[in-house]
Simulated assay, not measured.
Amino acid sequence: MPHDFTPDPAATPSGGAPNDGSRRTFMKQAGGILGLALAPPLLSQAERLTAYSKTVEGVTTLQLKVNGVSRTLQAEPRVTLLDALREYLDLTGTKKGCDHGQCGACTVHVDGRRINACLTLAVMHQGKEITTIEGLNKGEQLHPMQEAFIKHDGFQCGYCTPGQIMSGVACVQEGHATSDGQTREWMSGNLCRCGAYPNIVAAVREVAGQASKG
């Protein structure tokens, strides 16, 4: 038996097309979804963390061990490690480049492993050993990687240099600097706008050679 179906004139005017109200609603919804899809890449990592942490408010006490010294700061839990180091602890050697985890200028070590400080929250690293570029040298004695960068002229403008050096130290410690090709691969997360890559590789390879000889 055929079903008795009567079309709704308001829903399907002019031969079944949605009415103006339905079209407007659809376009608004589609536009909103598209806006959300396009918005994140245009925001910095710090802005995204802030947007996603609207329910986390209020200043709290954070304890960070940086370069062997325990430091106390008052900050919101949504503050990135990069901003905590630069804005709250005045350790400006760690640079803010892209703020998206793409350039490596903010590279620091946490418990001996290199990370991008702009992609993580300071509150997550309480009780951990944080090392920045300021903590590599021992008094007036430079770290071998710092000396190698000077010897091989591994920098020009110098903005990316702290992150390059921190990644270079980690690269050697990880055993990922046994050849030029391997070094380039494992240092590829650090960008140099001046193009000093051959000199950077030479510096890292020299330190790796020294480490292999003990």
Rank of each mutant, 00 (worst) to 15 (best):
D20M: 07
R23L: 11
R24I: 11
R24E: 13
N19H: 15
K28F: 14
S14D: 09
R24F: 13
L34R: 05
A46E: 10
D8R: 09
A51C: 00
G16S: 06
T6L: 03
T12K: 01
A39N: 00
Q63E: 12
L38T: 15
L34T: 12
G31M: 13
L49P: 06
P41Q: 14
F5G: 00
T6Y: 10
G15T: 03
T6E: 14
T12H: 06
Q29V: 13
L42P: 04
G21N: 08
P40M: 10
G32A: 15
G58C: 11
I33E: 01
A10F: 00
L43A: 10
L49R: 08
P9A: 06
R48W: 11
G35E: 01
R24K: 07
Q45L: 09
T55R: 12
L34M: 14
Q45Y: 04
D8M: 00
R23P: 00
G31K: 12
S44P: 04
T25Q: 11
L62T: 03
T61K: 14
T25S: 14
T12C: 02
F5R: 02
G35K: 02
A39T: 12
A17Y: 10
R23G: 01
D4M: 03
N19V: 04
G21S: 10
L36P: 12
D8N: 15
P7Y: 03
A51G: 07
A51S: 02
A10P: 02
D4V: 09
G32L: 12
E47I: 01
N19A: 13
M27E: 09
S14W: 05
G31W: 12
A30N: 08
G35C: 02
P7C: 05
Q63V: 02
A10N: 10
L43K: 08
G58P: 11
